[in-house]
Amino acid sequence: MRRLRSALGAVVAGCTVVGALALAGCSSGDGGASGQGSGTGGGDRTLVVFAAASLTDTFTTIAHRFEQDHAGVTVKLSFAGSSDLVAQLQEGAPADVFASADEPNMTKLTDAGLAAGDPVPFATNVLTIVTPPDDPAGITSFQDLAKPDAKVVVCAPQVPCGNATKEVEAATGVTIKPVSEESQVTDVLAKVTSGEADAGLVYVTDAQGALAKDSSSLKQIEFPEASKAVNTYPIVAVKDSEHAELASEFVAAVTSAAGQKVLKDAGFGAP
């Protein structure tokens, strides 16, 4: 995206948050944050952050730090596929910050006039193959995902991880015939770890996160063709946010040295 900037003027002195609520998808009402901010005025302000599902662990950490550093602030995190989140924003869903897993979905937001300023790239990610620990289909390469008897799960084409899958297929000439296409990358991972699928394509960060929690939960198979589709993650404050200054500070927290370390530790690449 040509309008992306690699630097953000605002500087945040720290980034902390206690009690951030990670939600599966956009929510309102009963699913809201409970106001467990630091200081005596917890819940005085609620910052709503829409973020790609692959950012669940890292943004929860960054949000925890941000909230601790901003007395009276509760960060309400809503995670889903980037395309779903953009659609919700276009339909009027209230949010203060949007972080996409790719640039095309961010372009939809900016083209709709819903971004407050230029989006800032903050991370990159690539795909990897995951299988159950016993690898029932004998997957050792990207080409093996085209085996007729392999039950493969991928992301839907409109989702960033699905679009990346299509790009790798086009670059390699390999055609995968998945048994299902999921609306977010975490659903692909769940079907593999539960044994419902023989293999799936997820981001490196999702695989590393799952293995960090349980090293026996799956098998990861890296493949060189993944470099054919590198997703850049941009973030922006949403136009007409009720907490514009706070939204800008959250963006700055993500792009700060501390935020970048959280992302790097999780396996994300530099923007």
Score class of each variant (00 low, 15 high):
residue 2 R to K: 10
residue 5 R to T: 14
residue 7 A to T: 15
residue 15 C to E: 05
residue 17 V to S: 06
residue 18 V to Y: 00
residue 20 A to L: 02
residue 23 L to E: 01
residue 29 G to S: 02
residue 30 D to V: 08
residue 30 D to G: 02
residue 33 A to M: 00
residue 35 G to D: 00
residue 49 V to G: 06
residue 55 L to R: 05
residue 56 T to A: 06
residue 59 F to Q: 04
residue 64 H to F: 02
residue 65 R to K: 08
residue 68 Q to P: 01
residue 68 Q to K: 10
residue 69 D to I: 07
residue 69 D to H: 11
residue 73 V to P: 00
residue 76 K to C: 03
residue 79 F to H: 15
residue 84 D to N: 15
residue 89 L to S: 06
residue 101 A to F: 11
residue 105 N to D: 15
residue 110 T to Q: 04
residue 122 F to C: 07
residue 132 P to H: 11
residue 137 A to V: 11
residue 140 T to S: 13
residue 155 C to K: 05
residue 160 P to W: 09
residue 162 G to Y: 07
residue 162 G to I: 03
residue 165 T to Q: 08
residue 166 K to D: 09
residue 171 A to V: 09
residue 183 S to N: 14
residue 185 V to G: 08
residue 186 T to F: 01
residue 186 T to W: 00
residue 186 T to A: 13
residue 191 K to T: 11
residue 191 K to P: 05
residue 192 V to Q: 11
residue 193 T to A: 08
residue 196 E to L: 13
residue 202 V to L: 07
residue 204 V to A: 04
residue 206 D to E: 15
residue 207 A to D: 08
residue 222 E to G: 11
residue 228 K to N: 14
residue 231 N to H: 03
residue 233 Y to Q: 06
residue 234 P to A: 03
residue 234 P to M: 02
residue 242 E to Y: 01
residue 252 A to C: 04
residue 257 A to S: 13
residue 260 Q to K: 09
residue 265 D to F: 03
residue 267 G to K: 04
residue 269 G to K: 03
